[in-house]
Amino acid sequence: MELHNIEKLLEKYFEATATVAEEETLRTYFSQDNVAKHLETYKPMFQYFSTAKEEQFTKKLPLKANKNYGKWISVAAVAAIVFSLYFGNLYQEKQAEQEEAQYAYNQTKKALDLLAQNFSKGTRKVAYLNQFEQTKQKLYKKK
């Protein structure tokens, strides 16, 4: 690269009128070893720009989806609790109802049994009446 050219580019560079490509030329010129004596002052400047570009962001990003989960887990927990309370209650109610029904059933059965017993007692008594009828028939036939 012609020294005269570099000087011209430097001038443009400091007036901030150089293009990206022209600045790239300067950077490559100053990154090599044989830089003209009177231009050596600029060397660290361009060298720094090149090294500064190598710095990297190494920290890990905590992008875990649980950031969004957190919110929803509490919602899900509340829903589960409400759900279980509601259905737990419902279940208990159902059970109590069932017990009551069973009790009522037993009572009714007992009552009906009692009734049936009394009925059968009645039929046995009616059997005597049959006897009476038979003897009555016998009497009529003899006649």
């Binding site: 560079y13 400091f14 007036e15 901030a16 002052t41 600029y42 400047m45």
Partner: peptide, 21 residues
């Protein structure tokens, strides 16, 4: 404004660098 700021920044760096030298 960008050109002015850039030119000033570059010149300041140059100036301070030569001073240090």
């Amino acid at each position: 404004a960008i050109r002015v700021a850039l030119s000033r920044a570059r010149k300041t760096v140059r100036e301070k660098l030569t001073q240090k030298h």
